[in-house]
């Protein structure tokens, strides 16, 4: 069986998806990145190897997400693609009439506007991560509950309170204030979900023409309270596709499938053995000019595999290899 592997290495979670030749999902894996992208890619590959039957042959690998270049070097990717294109392609595969894709992940959030099957506009959050999964995680932690409990209890809210969601710092002080005033925890939690949705729509969604069908992807789509808040705010049905949390990886796999069929080349995939290799990462300050760029390098047994992080091409030679 010919299969295609998509790897999405995000800031908070690492996702894997394997598709067969008919673009059906064979298997998928969802792991916390825990600040160790290389180890997680290796661990994910190990798990995939166990799950795939012996006849399965990886005919193409694509990486996406914020660590896409790093992951690409490690696995020998045939395609390195940005998250926006990957998410859009995956959404179109499952809901071909989709006009709006809302994607909220751990540290970033995106909106993609699609018309007649092509992306016409997109937006991404800037440096601020208010309105993403980490924001909710942080608040859940502060209230000493896990994120599932937050989601469940928020749905029990009768009269949600208004929380300022522009900034996590303000949201937190607002929540503390509402607690001390004696509001119910459930109402505060749902107020927080509404604040996140408002913040998302005002920042990322500003000026975008949001039309149904609206698809909601990314890890935060697990949270039913957020889905409800989005539905209320947009006054439209919100479609959460079955594998919403691995859509980026699915999109990458779809794209590499297309690429491999077009190019007729063999895959550059280094095989599942890469999960056993010991990678070494280090960094140094380049002294070639006053910019003093921090160059990160990836090596095996002292042999440099890739270097990047510079403002010029001086160190990035290995990437083009």
């Amino acid at each position: 069986m010919k299969t295609y592997l998509g790897i999405d290495v995000g800031s908070v979670t690492t996702k894997f998806a394997v598709l067969d030749e008919n673009n059906e999902l064979v298997t998928n894996i969802y792991l916390p990145t825990q600040g160790k992208p290389i180890e997680m890619v290796q661990q994910g590959l190990k798990q995939i190897k166990q799950q795939l039957s012996n006849g399965a042959d990886i005919c193409g690998v694509a990486t996406t997400g914020s660590a896409r270049y790093l992951a690409g070097v490690i696995v020998g990717a045939d395609l390195v693609k940005n998250e926006i294109t990957s998410q859009a392609v995956a959404a179109l595969q499952y809901i071909p009439q989709v006009q709006t894709v809302i994607e909220i992940g751990g540290q970033d959030s995106k909106i993609i506007i699609i018309r007649d099957g092509i992306v016409t506009d997109f937006g991404m959050n800037t440096v601020c991560a208010a309105g993403t999964g980490s924001f909710l995680d942080h608040q859940a932690l502060r209230l000493n509950m896990n994120i599932e409990e937050l989601s469940r209890r928020a749905l029990d809210s009768q009269t949600p309170v208004r929380i300022a969601g522009r900034c996590t710092v303000f949201a937190e002080s607002d929540m503390v204030h509402k607690q001390q005033m004696g509001h119910r925890t459930e109402d505060i939690l749902y107020g927080l979900c509404q604040a996140l949705v408002r913040n998302y729509l005002n920042n990322v969604g500003m000026g975008k023409d949001i039309q149904p069908p609206i698809v909601f992807q990314g890890g935060v789509a697990f949270n039913q309270a957020i889905v409800k808040a989005l539905r209320e705010e947009l006054n439209n049905e919100i479609i959460v596709p079955p594998h919403h949390e691995v859509m980026g990886a699915i999109g990458a796999a779809l794209l590499v499938h297309e690429e491999m069929v077009n190019s007729q080349n063999g895959s550059k995939f280094k095989g599942f053995e890469v999960s056993e290799i010991k990678y070494h990462t280090s960094s140094f300050e380049c002294k070639a000019c006053p910019n003093l760029c921090e160059i990160a390098q990836l090596s095996i047994n002292g042999q440099v595999l890739a270097q990047w992080g510079g403002r010029c091409d001086l160190w990035e030679r290995s990437q083009s290899r």
């Binding site: 914020s66 940005n82 998250e83 926006i84 992306v119 016409t120 997109f122 440096v127």
Partner: peptide, 22 residues
């Protein structure tokens, strides 16, 4: 001054993809 290179690169790549695919 805090604009990360990754942010610029990701947006550019997505914008160019959008144009080519269109």
């Amino acid at each position: 001054e805090h604009t990360a290179e990754a942010g610029v690169v990701t947006r550019l790549e997505a914008f160019l993809d959008m144009i080519y695919r269109r």
